[in-house]
Simulated assay, not measured.
Amino acid sequence: MLRGRARREQAAHAGGTPPADDPLDAAQERRVRAVLALGGVPQADLPDGVQQVRLRLLERAAKGEEAPRDVSAWSAVVASRLALDWHRAKRRQERLGERLAALRQPEHQPSGEDNRLLSLAVARGLDGLPDNQRQVLVLRFYADLPVRSIAEELGVPEGTVKSRLHTAVRALRARLHEDEVV
């Protein structure tokens, strides 16, 4: 019986009609898609954006918060924020790509073997760091997050992030010198 209901809901949703317990009706979903599309989110990412809005509505309900007075307006605002987040993530990825491209163009091109040795040494060095130091190092230099964002996400002061970064870089540099990689 439950499988039949799940299949009917899935079929109804695939056909364009949301299931009965869907927090967004069809008009609200169309509005969310439009806001995301106008915000520059690619067509392929629109279903994920709509799901994110649904998830946020369900999270509100799970926390015991009352539903927004105007779900349509609330969901449009959330969709616009998601579009901004999408652009920020895209810019972050582009900056990271530029940094990596700059790193790949040194004065002399190291051989493939040199690159493999360096990658292995860095991986070993990261494995040797305490979890909190490795975490801030990866967030700062691989995820390209600013110190302030790292501090906010981890719930620690900026000074703590800076201290952990300093200690981690020193330890990683020492390890790479010890292994005679740099």
Results as ranks from 00 to 15, higher is better:
G4F: 13
Q52D: 15
P130L: 03
K162D: 10
L36E: 07
R140W: 02
A101D: 13
K162W: 09
A79K: 01
G40A: 06
D131Y: 11
R88I: 12
R124P: 01
R60W: 06
L96D: 05
Q109G: 03
L46P: 03
D114N: 06
E59K: 05
R33W: 06
A12P: 00
A73N: 08
E113G: 01
Q52P: 02
D25V: 07
V78I: 12
K63P: 01
H108R: 08
P42W: 07
A34W: 13
R164M: 01
V77P: 02
E180H: 10
H108S: 08
S119E: 15
Q93W: 14
S163Y: 14
R69H: 09
L120E: 14
F141E: 12
W74L: 00
R164Q: 09
A26N: 11
A67V: 09
E158S: 08
V156Q: 02
L139W: 12
G97N: 12
Q135P: 04
V161Y: 00
A27N: 10
F141V: 05
Q133H: 11
T167I: 14
Q135W: 01
W74A: 03
R124C: 00
P146H: 09
H108T: 12
R104H: 08
D25W: 03
A6C: 06
R7S: 07
V182D: 14
R164T: 00
H108Q: 11
A83H: 00
A89L: 14
L24S: 02
L145Y: 08
P19Q: 08
P19R: 10
L145I: 04
A73R: 12
R134Y: 04
R3W: 13
L172A: 03
Q28L: 01
L117M: 11
G112C: 07
Q43V: 14
A79F: 01
D179F: 13
A123E: 15
V50T: 05
L55A: 11
A11Q: 14
G15E: 13
R134L: 00
R99V: 11
E65M: 07
R8G: 00
W86T: 07
E178R: 06
A143I: 03
L57R: 02
A101M: 10
P23V: 08
T17K: 08
D25Y: 05
L165R: 02
D85A: 09
L129Y: 04
R69G: 12
V182H: 07
V169G: 01
R91P: 04
D114W: 10
V50I: 05
V181A: 04
G40H: 01
R148C: 05
L137F: 13
R173T: 15
A67E: 15
R31S: 13
V169P: 06
A14P: 03
E180N: 11
L137R: 00
R3S: 09
A79P: 04
S72M: 02
G159D: 14
K90I: 04
G97K: 11
D131V: 12
R170G: 09
V50H: 00
A11F: 13
G39N: 03
E66H: 08
A11I: 14
S75Q: 05
L24Y: 04
N132R: 12
R3E: 14
Q10L: 15
R91T: 11
L58G: 04
P157R: 03
Q109E: 15
R8P: 00
L176S: 01
R88K: 09
R91G: 01
R148F: 09
H108K: 05
H13E: 15
R56Y: 08
R3G: 09
L176M: 06
A171I: 10
E153P: 03
A89N: 12
A101Q: 12
S163N: 13
F141I: 06
